[in-house]
Design a protein around this nucleic acid. Structure first.
Lengths: 346, 346
DNA sequence: CGTATTAATGCAATCGATTGCATTAACGGT
DNA sequence: ACCGTTAATGCAATCGATTGCATTAATACG
């Protein structure tokens, strides 16, 4: 109904000029003002229920106090905690976030970033997923503060924050190895996605480090990071090497699919075959057999990335490390055991 | 680096006035313009990579093409699909969304809505949770388009969209009844939250409709909508009536907690006691015993609510029904069976 | 051919807050 | 008492797009 009060209203009310009102209300003002005026202005502002018009302010200052958050899909359970982590840092500092979902589609990425830029976001946190993201690189080059999460884009100077996935893969690999597994297969995610590629590389590296010939191990790429993708790729793995005793999966959902397919062909987990996941998504520990997996600090990663962005936004870009790596944690549960001694499996 | 092109740049480039440029670029312009100018302007715009400054536009037109979405908590798995549903409608129409999480806390509600208003959102979709939400009512009264989702606030004229929860509760209640259960308990959610209250009311109604004395049935209120809340409340229920044969829970997580507590005291589900959930959250069907529950159309609800909001935003508020109810679906799985005939339980 | 229309475009105010510069008043120093 | 400071505030431009009104040019009409 009755529109919001503006500086002009307060000016009229107090008899001073709008610029004076503006200064009186500015918490970190540099110009000296008489105590009297400040009090009167604050008073009037209070009385009229004044709230600054951020749009007008943004137009003038070129700051919207809004950031963009680019994620693949909020319905993927690993992202909500990340988002909350980001907001736990941004909101207290007066920033709002606009979240966009790319669904890992090339075209959308560009379109959505444009939406963010149109709205004048002050910075972007990008949980990059595609191996190539030319759009975000261009944006960062143009001077907008950008942080990538879960993904480094080489040679661009964009600060990135990642979980120590390489270490995570190494941990599960070692666990399987120490249980006696040697024919360890990798169920990779879509290699077009950075997560898929990264974890595959880490798998190969871990295998080599343990003295196995990574070329001899069965590897199959899932088309999607979901149960169906896991089922299909598992079939391929078992075809490649029927004597596989363990499948190291690129994420939890793939692992669930793997277990499902194995069960369908008569292989029980972990008795006949061991399976591991990655991410430790919510409720995972309630689904049998409780999956041995790697826990990633989603919330903390979001919060840390936001912390970096805040620094960049406040002009302390120099203080931002180019690389931040968060530790991961092995979660040993029930989906891993020693390979069958009898070697019954055909 | 090189800042964005503005109307002024295009004007200089083409030799016409900025206002003419503005009109030439306006898809639904009313003023007649010569084809020649339009072409030249479009050309120049293209060439300069012109993108309108939405901030400036917003200041003048008082439309930000941004909406606010208020939810309790995005990490609660029922909300991501709702959010995606909303965006599936809003984004193609040029709207961005700012999502805020209230954590069901009174104070935050107000503060967050203020954040949205400060940013000049054109409308709000509010998945109200508290029984009383004076803030959002006031906002709606001030003329801003508001839709509430999952909750009606009586007598305010705010259009609301709800799932037919009453019908859902009735369906599970009937199912239990038809299996032979008579001592059916209700594990309610926090009654401060509308969902908790609503489902309790529906439970009582269903009981009465089936000819049971709802006053005689065990009812316990959980402090939180989570597993721990479910466990604690289940203890209370079993204390109230040790002969309870079925627990109808206000949501899935409470049900998981209930089953957990029952198992801890030696009651197997469904053999010793039947348990039902509500919501059918993601991955629920992978957690044993697969919970019989009520599926709510989260995505569709979000999309439908957004559809209503869009109508209001485009000035067709008159066409928006005050009430929209989406059907729910009973998902029969494994957590319900007939009560033990032997009545062994102490 | 003069005037009334209409088409095409320019002008300038506006949205509300911010900020460099100008102005005024008060004060201190010598 | 005079001048240089500094304190306190006003002035006006600015951010970029939009839009009612004015203006000019072109066309139609009688």
């Amino acid at each position: 109904m009755n529109k919001r009060a503006t500086l002009k209203d307060i000016a009229r009310e107090t008899g001073v000029h709008v610029s004076t009102v503006s200064r009186a209300l500015d918490p970190k003002r540099d110009t000296p003002l008489s105590e009297d005026v400040v009090v009167r202005v604050r008073d009037a502002a209070e009385r009229l229920g004044y709230r600054p018009n951020r749009i007008a302010s943004s137009l003038r200052t070129r700051k919207t106090m809004t950031i963009g958050v680019v994620i693949p899909d909020i319905t993927n359970p690993i992202f909500p905690p990340i988002v909350r982590g980001i907001e736990s840092v941004m909101e207290p500092r007066g920033y709002a976030s606009i979240i966009v979902n790319t669904d890992s589609q090339r075209g959308r990425d560009k379109r959505l970033i444009e939406i963010l830029l149109d709205r004048g976001v002050d910075g972007i946190i990008h949980t990059a997923v595609l191996l190539e993201d030319p759009t975000i690189v261009k944006v960062a080059r143009s001077g907008l503060p950008v942080i990538t999460l879960n993904r480094k884009i080489e040679g661009t100077g964009i600060p990135y924050l990642i979980n120590d996935e390489e270490d995570g893969i190494r941990k599960v690999f070692s666990l399987l190895y120490n249980h006696g597994h040697r024919r360890i297969a990798h169920l990779a995610g879509p290699l077009e996605l950075s997560t898929g590629q990264l974890r595959l590389d880490a798998f190969r590296k871990a295998a080599t480090d343990m003295g196995l010939d990574s070329g001899a191990l069965a590897i199959a790429e899932a088309e999607q990071f979901d149960e169906q993708g896991g089922r299909e790729a598992t079939a391929k793995i078992l075809a490649q090497d029927p004597h596989t005793t363990a499948i190291l999966c690129a994420n939890d959902r793939l692992a669930l699919g793997a277990i499902d397919h194995c069960a369908a062909v008569g292989l029980a987990c972990p008795d006949d075959i061991s399976v591991t996941g990655f991410n430790d998504m919510p409720f995972l520990d309630m689904i049998p057999p409780r999956l041995t997996t790697v826990r990633i600090q989603q919330f903390e990663a979001g919060a840390a990335a936001a912390g970096l962005l805040v620094k960049m936004l406040s002009g302390q870009g120099g203080d931002v490390p180019g690389e931040t790596i968060l530790p991961v944690q092995l979660m040993e549960r029930d989906s891993v055991s020693a390979p069958r001694a009898d070697g019954i499996r055909s």
